[in-house]
């Protein structure tokens, strides 16, 4: 989407928001085991970047990755079924929240190791272009990842070999509980600039601002430019992980959280729509998610006997662990 489409952007942020809220309900009810890393507050980044991508472009996400997968176009029902560990899930219940992937729409997976996906996506985009596909990629990561050596190595490879990858840093201020100021020497754009990459800082709470910045970078990349970086400044409205709902960790002052939550990407995008348009999108999203929840809860759980299916693409059957 090169041109602005406020309805579509709002629909995406609203879908992610309500998906996450429903997922939180399902965590509380015990239907989702293991918890999730809620994307609440950061929806504008996935929505804005993916609005600037084509369907055939590739993305990778993070442990806080539901938004990336949904914004790229995954079926919310199959995504939710994955969170519930059901056979109808995107990954047949083998991946869960942190590994949701949908190769058919260019989502090469949420990746739960911080900073790990950048090099994988760089290799994938490079390979697809070598095979003649004129596509680009976007890889999302948090502020914690900018201190991971392998991500900085990926910056170097992508820049050196001019692989069109948009490195999208979602700076929500904290790597789990570690504040950016306590962890990052220099700056995040400075990391990219050191490798000769163009870098921009954008208001991550405004989906349209993110879309405009991403579209400009992607246009340069499609025209033959190398990789670029966008630092999207954002705020995580909820916990690092839902375990924090049980074990309260004291690292963000209530006043800070209130200020952070005051700039809500759903309200910012929704404010650009008329009341009737907004209500129509809201109703459509609720209907989609009602159906998604019903589908996911009604879906069967995988058979334990097939626990290691897909371990090897070759079909090799591993030895069992018993006598």
């Amino acid at each position: 989407m090169i041109r602005s489409d406020p309805v579509r952007l709002y629909r995406t942020v609203r879908l992610i928001r309500r998906f996450e809220e429903r997922a939180l309900d399902l965590v509380r009810s015990g239907a989702i085991v293991g918890g999730i890393h809620p994307y609440l507050g950061q929806e504008g980044i996935a929505a804005g970047v993916c609005a600037a991508l084509r369907d055939d472009d590739l993305v990778t996400g993070t442990h806080r990755g539901h938004g990336h997968v949904l914004a790229k176009g995954a079926d919310p029902a199959r995504m939710l079924a994955e969170l519930l560990g059901r056979v109808t899930g995107l990954n047949r219940g083998r991946g869960g929240s942190m590994h949701a992937a949908d190769f058919g729409i260019g989502v090469l997976g949420a990746n739960a190791i911080v900073g790990a996906a950048g090099a994988i996506l760089t290799g994938a985009v490079w390979a697809r272009r070598r095979r003649g596909d004129d596509l680009v990629g976007a890889t999302f990561f948090g502020d914690g990842a900018v201190n991971e050596g392998m991500l900085l190595e990926a910056f170097n490879l992508a820049a050196l070999w001019r692989v069109p990858v948009l490195f999208v840093c979602e700076n929500n201020g904290y790597a789990t509980t570690m504040p950016v100021d306590g962890a990052v020497a220099g700056t995040i754009p400075g990391r990219a600039e050191a490798f000769g990459m163009q870098a921009a800082v954008v208001d991550g709470q405004d989906p349209e601002a993110v879309r405009v910045a991403a579209a400009a970078a992607i246009a340069r990349m499609r025209a033959g430019g190398g990789p670029e970086l966008i630092e999207a400044r954002t705020y995580r409205f909820d916990a690092h992980h839902t375990f924090e709902h049980v074990v309260r960790l004291d690292y963000r002052a209530p006043e800070e959280v209130a200020v952070g939550r005051s700039r809500d990407p759903v309200e910012i995008a929704g404010g650009r729509l008329g009341d009737a348009d907004r209500a129509a999108v809201d109703a459509e999203v609720e209907a989609t998610l009602d159906a998604a929840v019903e589908f996911a809860l009604a879906s069967p759980e995988p058979e334990p006997a097939g626990a290691l299916e897909h371990l090897y693409a070759s079909g090799l059957v591993a030895r069992t662990g018993d006598a």
Partner: peptide
């Protein structure tokens, strides 16, 4: 580390 994962990505593609 980067070129090993670069290879992973190229293989996925």
């Amino acid at each position: 580390q980067a070129f090993t994962s670069f290879a992973t990505g190229a293989a996925l593609a």
